[in-house]
């Protein structure tokens, strides 16, 4: 926990907290329900340095004093921004977090270090907000699973090399596992644990 006040906080929250959060939530829910689809988040949030508008809107929509949040850099403007606007406690260990925020230039701990829920309570797992460099331009992955009609191809840019290997491990734990929300600029894409990812555009495992 860090004290509030002191240095002025950079950025601003929703102009209207009720409708700002509602609009953002519907986009986030659509993203989670239709994995692999890029959802535009209409938001007036102005994020601090080191955080895109979509990430900021997602965190402001979902976090409050009941959610522990892990930041790759706890001393960043982004972390101070979240503390100031939501009161969410920051945690140092990824394993204690309900939400994690991963910046493209920040540390990306192994997915297995976050809470993955247990057999009886798979919902007690972490949700990671992962900022990617882009939704296009990476190596193509074919996604299948609930929320996807047949298969959908995504190619997010800027993920660690072993990420998709880790993702298969995460998916294999189903119904346990972490859920991801990729963000870039004002858009968000969901990747719940129920989704299987296969390398290559045509291969559908």
């Amino acid at each position: 926990m860090r004290p509030l006040g002191g240095d002025a906080v950079e950025g601003s929250s929703f102009g209207d907290p009720v409708f700002g959060a509602q609009t953002a939530f519907r986009a986030i829910m659509r993203a989670m329900a239709l994995p692999g689809r890029v959802e535009r988040l209409e938001t007036d949030v102005s994020p601090p340095k080191g955080m895109g508008p979509a990430s900021a809107a997602v965190l402001l929509t979902l976090c409050d004093l009941d959610t522990a949040v892990w930041f790759s850099d706890a001393d960043s403007d982004a972390a101070r921004f979240l503390r100031f606007f939501t009161d969410a406690p920051l945690v140092e260990a990824p394993g204690d977090a309900d939400f994690g925020f991963v910046h493209p230039r920040g540390i990306f701990p192994a997915l297995s270090r976050f809470k993955r829920g247990d057999d009886q309570y798979p919902d007690r797992s972490a949700t990671l907000i992962v900022e990617v460099a882009g939704f296009e331009g990476g190596s193509p992955l074919s996604l299948t699973g609930p929320g996807i009609e047949d298969a959908t191809v995504i190619s997010p840019l800027g993920l660690p090399e072993d990420f998709w290997g880790q993702w298969s491990e995460n998916h294999a734990l189903y119904p346990c596992g972490v859920d991801l929300l990729f963000t870039c600029d004002v858009s968000v894409m969901g990747l719940p644990r129920s989704v299987r990812a296969a390398l290559g555009e045509h291969e559908v495992a």
């Binding site: 939530f25 009941d66 919902d123 797992s125 949700t127």
Partner: peptide, 28 residues
């Protein structure tokens, strides 16, 4: 408040909804 519930309750329900969508059919 808009839609009767207070904002903190809505956030709690929204978080549950996302987990429910991630594990279809599981009761959160």
């Amino acid at each position: 408040n808009f839609a009767y519930l207070d904002e903190q309750t809505k956030r709690m329900i929204r978080r549950c909804l996302l987990k429910a969508i991630a594990v279809p059919g599981y009761q959160v």
